[in-house]
Amino acid sequence: MIHDWLKERSGRGAEVSGWRRSWPLAQAEFLTLFRSRWGVALFLLCLFPGLGRLVMLLIIFGVVNFGPVGLRARLQNRAEIPGLDPSRVDFYLEPVVSVMPGMVFFLLLTSLVVARTIARDRLANAMELYWTRGLSPLAYVACKWLGGWLVVASITVMVPLALWLTAGFLAEDWSLLATSAGGMARAAVGLVVVSAAWTGICLALSAICGSPNAAMVAWSMLLVGSSAVGVVLASALREPWLRSCLSLWEAGTVVVRAIAGVPQRGVSIPGACAMLAGCLIVTMLLARSRLRLEEALR
C-alpha cells in the first residue's frame, strides 16, 4: 500500500520561477568543494599565500614580534620596499596575481574543482536529468559558472579584501583605508572580471573534454603552457610585452593591475585583453557545440 500521506498531499506547491529556480544548482556547485575533507583541506591550502601576507601585516604593525631581526626591521620600515607597503594596492594583490605562489594555488583550485565539473556531469549522464527538468543548456552553464566562480572568487577576491580590511583595523588611524579605498575598489572589480573570465575558460574546457582528467590536463596545459611560451618567446625576441599577450595567466594579471591602477612596465594592455577575450570566446564556441540538447540522450 502506498502511504496515505503521499496520496493526500500534492507535491506541487507554489512554483518557483526565473533565476530562483536555477540558483540551487549554482549553490550546489559552490558547496561541492566543502562537502569532503579533501575539499576543505584544498580550500585551506589555497588560503596559505593570504595567511603569509597576514603574518607580514601583523609584523609590520607590530602586533606580533618574531622572526629574524633584520626581516622585522625591513618589514617595519616599509617605505623602503614599495611591494611591502600596506598603503599600496599591490601589497594585497600580490598573493593572488603573482606566478609564485598565486598561480600555483589558483591552478590547484581550478583544475580540481572547476575543470572537472561539466566533464564529471557528462560522465554520470547528469545532463539528461538536468535538461529534462526544463533547464536550458545556457542556464546550466551559467549556474555551473556561477558556482565555480564563487569558489574561485572566495580566494582571489575575498582574500585581498580581507587583508585590506585587516590592515585598516590594525593601522593607527583610518587614513590607510581612506587613501587606498579607491584603488582597492578598482582592484576588486579587476579581480572579479578576470577571475570570471578564467573560470569561464576553465569551464568551457570542461565542457569540451570527454573526461574530468582530460579537462584538468587541458586547463593546466593552457595556463602553464601559455605562460612558458610567453616567457620563452619574450626572452628570445627581447620583447617583454609578448608575455602579456601570449600567457593566459600574465594577461589576466596585467588586466587586474591595469584596472586597479597599479603602474606596469613592459606590458601590452590591449594585447592582454585580446588574449583573455580571445581564449574565452574560442573555448565557449567550442563548448557550445558539445552542449546541445540532443547530447542529453545521445
Binding site: S36, D121, L123, A124, N125, A126, G134
Partner: peptide, 15 residues
Amino acid sequence: GRVGYMPERDAHLPA
C-alpha cells in the same frame, strides 16, 4: 513541467 522522466541510462548527480 507535469512530466516525470526516468532515463534508460545510468544517470546521477556526481558526489
